[in-house]
Design a protein around this nucleic acid. Sequence first.
DNA 1: ATACCTGCAAACAATTTGCACAAAC
DNA 2: GTTTGTGCAAATTGTTTGCAGGTAT
Lengths: 160, 160
Amino acid sequence: LEDIVAGGTPIAPINPDQWLQAVRHALRAGGHRITWPRNRVLQTIVRYQAPFTAEKLYADLQHLQMQQTPGRATVYRTLDQLVHSGWVVRLHTSNSEAGYYATWPGHIHHIVCTSCGKVIAFAGCMIEGMMTHLARQTGFTVEGHTLQVYGRCAQCQALS
Amino acid sequence: LEDIVAGGTPIAPINPDQWLQAVRHALRAGGHRITWPRNRVLQTIVRYQAPFTAEKLYADLQHLQMQQTPGRATVYRTLDQLVHSGWVVRLHTSNSEAGYYATWPGHIHHIVCTSCGKVIAFAGCMIEGMMTHLARQTGFTVEGHTLQVYGRCAQCQALS
DNA sequence: ATACCTGCAAACAATTTGCACAAAC
DNA sequence: GTTTGTGCAAATTGTTTGCAGGTAT
């Protein structure tokens, strides 16, 4: 139980090159193809320092002033793929627009700064213990959960 | 810490009449008016046994075959109010349509059955402990969190 | 070769909004 | 009588889809 309680250990931030390489590998392994538009989308995603929306990603790609830029459909389709394969998290925002950010696949939670948007990932979530407890009390079989934590990062607190 | 770990105590289901009365009181206290359409919306909401969508609520209101039924705008506006005042929870579904269900205001979490949609509320969430731990480790000030738990209820398990 | 992928523009679906009227306090 | 709420229909917005070519493997 101590281990569970001790959960919530921050994880090192994403290394863009490592991430890109890993995603490309995973895509290929899944029978997908590494195309030019896809690559551009991946590269743009991994450079964000805060959660982004699909439309922002699309707009940013336009503004890169290349001869050719990925179309809106490609952006949405690629995002979907990445969410399904676990390389991107879809945030449930209060408004209608979905937020996204890059991550490593697996059971990881995140804390998002409400001021600057910075995301910190942490592993070892103690919710599992509560799940077991709940299951016993209610008769439910717990299949999963979503957790979103928000707050203000140290930097933003210092500024206020 | 034991108390926190022991968290996850189921809460009794909502009593429709109690809920209606409480909501009406709260609305009035907030400077709002108890109108006929509002009442119809409230009454319909409290009878649901599983999360519902705004459009379903609207459709159901239409099918009640009254001389007058609340308009779509009223349904959405009322839902918004209730969510803001904490009497209704907005579920973050995987698709674009938002789910809703009645609850009591306050820090309560819910577990939703993926088969029948039944919702069980529970209090005493041990996440608080993890929050403190996290805050210490990351320098964040934790402002809040959202948690959604899903699984299969005892009844649905028996049926399979 | 043959999947798979792309871009475009049209289609969609959920939700929001402007406004003139109505109702509650 | 003033503030708050309502209904309608039109407008918005985020996202998805059909299809006629392209392109990676």
